[in-house]
């Protein structure tokens, strides 16, 4: 965790500085004279984040290294799940825009079943149909409203 803290602290400190000196001045106008600047609170928060991130880095650099080794808090499986499910969502959003919301929904269910290790064809085909039918029944019949 020590190394993860140092890396995240550096990333956050750089992010805070970039926000303070580049993004906030670029994205927020100074505001009319005599009124509190709209930049004030976002700027204060980023200054706060930068200082705390620097403290996080310093504290962890000064701390003794773990005797049992510096184990990453994120496992390989979790990182893979993030990438794979992220890819499914990307595909689903593309299908939502270019094909239909129904196809997007089916891809979310079937894709995540595949990612999670499900290989039975009847389950991969049947579950999206069942879930989409259940949603249709809940919203269009029970609640009497359209989703899309």
């Amino acid at each position: 965790m020590r190394r993860a803290n140092v890396v995240s602290g550096v990333v956050l400190a750089v992010f805070g500085i970039a926000m303070l000196f580049a993004i906030i001045p670029w994205q927020i106008e100074p505001g009319p004279q005599g009124m509190m600047s709209p930049r004030l609170v976002p700027g204060m928060m980023m200054a706060f984040v930068t200082v705390l991130a620097a403290l996080l880095v310093i504290n962890n650099l000064r701390a003794e290294p773990d005797l049992e080794g510096d184990v990453s808090p994120i496992s390989r499986g979790e990182l893979l799940a993030l990438i794979r499910i992220g890819a499914i969502f990307a595909l689903s959003v593309a299908l939502f825009s270019w094909v239909s919301p129904l196809a997007a929904g089916a891809v979310v269910v079937a894709g995540s079943l595949l990612v999670l290790g499900e290989r039975r064809p009847w389950m991969i085909l049947g579950m999206p149909v069942l879930l989409l039918l259940a949603l249709w029944f809940l919203f269009y019949k029970v609640l009497g409203t359209a989703i899309v």
Partner: peptide, 29 residues
């Protein structure tokens, strides 16, 4: 430290959008 960073980020993201007093858009890109 991490708790306070999370809190500051929460308040920061809440400032996104049109500011209610000056009507200046903030971080809307």
């Amino acid at each position: 430290i991490k708790g306070l960073i999370a809190a500051a980020f929460g308040v920061f993201f809440a400032t996104v959008g049109i500011e209610t007093e000056t009507f200046v858009p903030r971080l809307t890109f």
